[in-house]
Design a protein around this nucleic acid. Structure first.
Length: 181
DNA sequence: GCCTGGATTGTCT
DNA sequence: GACAATCCAGGCA
């Protein structure tokens, strides 16, 4: 099975279009990897987005070029991973909410505890912990970084992905910008 | 098995 | 000083 790293051009489009295209792609983090099965889109005119109130030290990565990883810390104990979309300065991103573990499962179990595979990476905070992603990875380039990448193994995105309202936020929850494979 | 409430800290106003 | 793109334990059905 051939795995092809996604190139810059893949990410250079609106987050609402990029999000469903990322379904069934594979997130690689060193020895660990998982298939992307749940995503959410965030846009600059979106009150729920960190970029809505303008650029700050925390969300600077989101304003940068597409294909970079935006990692932030939230709720005092969790990290969340986003893929920057759009063009430079656009402040669009796709939040990675859920994965299915493929490789390095024993490593993930060591970090997350002895749980069934699916529970290792079925939430934004969990998948970051399982893959060992933290603030050090904020701003890394998924197109060139040695450890972190998004690859395509030939599996196509689902023809009819499940689309639902977003969850876990308090505003703009009516936007159907959440996709599940 | 489903639902409810508490935990905990960096960042912005 | 308040909030936040969450998780998990514990209680109840």
């Amino acid at each position: 099975m051939t795995e092809q790293r996604l190139e810059r051009e893949f990410f250079e489009r609106g987050s609402v279009e990029l999000a469903p295209a990322l379904l069934n792609k594979i997130l690689v983090a060193g020895p660990c990897a998982g298939r992307i099965v749940e995503v959410e889109a965030y846009r600059p005119d979106d009150p729920a987005s960190h970029s809505f109130r303008g650029r700050t030290a925390r969300n600077a990565t989101m304003f940068g070029p597409a294909g970079h990883l935006y990692v932030y810390f939230t709720y005092g104990m969790h990290f969340c991973a986003n893929v920057v979309a759009g063009t430079d300065g656009d402040a669009q991103a796709v939040l990675l909410r859920g994965l299915v573990p493929l490789r390095g499962i024993e490593i993930m179990r060591g970090r997350r505890g002895n749980k069934p595979d699916r529970l290792l990476t079925d939430g934004p905070g969990k998948l970051c912990q399982a893959l060992g992603i933290d603030r050090r990875h904020d701003g890394v380039d998924l197109c060139t970084n040695a450890e972190l990448a998004i690859v395509d193994d030939g599996t196509l995105p689902p023809a009819t992905p499940v689309i639902t309202p977003r969850i876990g936020i308090r505003v703009a929850t009516e936007q159907p910008w959440r996709w599940l494979a």
